[in-house]
Design a protein around this nucleic acid. Structure first.
Length: 237
DNA sequence: AACAGGTTCAACCGCGAAACA
DNA sequence: TTGTTTCGCGGTTGAACCTGT
């Protein structure tokens, strides 16, 4: 039986106060991000380490970019999601100043609904067989009602079309988040990063080859099979 | 103004894997 | 080699906020 992360009774939960934030900021400014387990006690916080880590990473870090996502960021998220699936930390790693939590929330509350309204399955980035929901009725799809439950019941479809890291170990993936995803791809790993998006209708198809630019370095070449008539897939151009 | 329903987003939970003893 | 601890991730929740009636 696994021990809960916060077995201490009376540990604070819920929203952080300004004083708690300041304590955490002050401590990390002096000591850096060390052992999260021991940090709360050392910083004088009545929180579990996990909570401190989350607060720092998602909210207090000085390099966090706040505010609305730009169109370029949104496009990049969609592209990366098509490649990587729900690997939010990886996707966020390609968006300077954005956190995985922020990207995940933005996906679930904005992009997901937008894709659905355009007739695209956000789980696999394919066109739906059923007619799209008109854009004027986006309220039919609530993220609370769909994202959570769909992801629980529809694991298969939530996977990306390809699994770029299917041949890698977790260590590989961890290193790629910290050092350089691009280095691995251009390096020794034998990864299949070809991405083919198949549109149900075989007519009027165009083959587009795209180099996905990440950190101004071309790392992925993918072939995207798209329909000229489908505006949403123009996102991949 | 009051209420209901929908949306957003900060925070929590549980799990898997790495690190360590 | 095995068991335990710690970390990081993705999924989920719920309070606060927004919007329509």
């Amino acid at each position: 039986m696994r021990k809960p992360c916060c077995d201490k009774e009376g540990t604070n939960k819920g929203a952080w106060s300004k004083q708690e934030d300041q304590k955490l900021i002050d401590y990390i400014r002096i000591h850096g991000e060390g052992c999260w387990r021991s940090l709360p006690k050392a910083a004088g916080l009545d929180r579990c380490g996990k909570s401190c880590r989350l607060r720092w990473i998602n909210y207090l870090r000085p390099d966090i970019k706040r505010g609305n996502f730009g169109q370029d960021e949104e496009d990049l998220i969609i592209k990366l999601h098509a490649l990587l699936g729900n690997r939010w930390s990886l996707i966020a790693g390609r968006l300077p100043g954005r956190t995985d939590n922020e990207v995940k929330n933005y996906w679930n509350s904005h992009i997901r609904r937008k894709l659905i309204s355009m007739g695209i399955d956000p789980n696999n980035h394919r066109l739906n067989q059923i007619p799209p929901i008109p854009f004027s009725q986006p309220k039919c799809v609530s993220p609370a009602a769909t994202s959570s439950h769909e992801s629980m019941n529809n694991n298969e479809s939530s996977k990306p079309l390809i699994k770029p890291f299917a041949n890698t170990t977790t260590a590989d993936r961890v290193s790629e988040t910290t050092s350089g995803f691009e280095d691995e791809i251009s390096g020794s790993l034998d990864l299949n990063l070809d991405l083919t998006i198949a549109v149900p209708s075989a007519s009027s198809l165009t083959l587009v080859q795209e180099k996905l630019q990440i950190n101004s370095k071309s790392i992925v070449t993918k072939e995207v099979t798209i329909s000229e008539q489908v505006p949403t897939l123009a996102l991949f151009r």
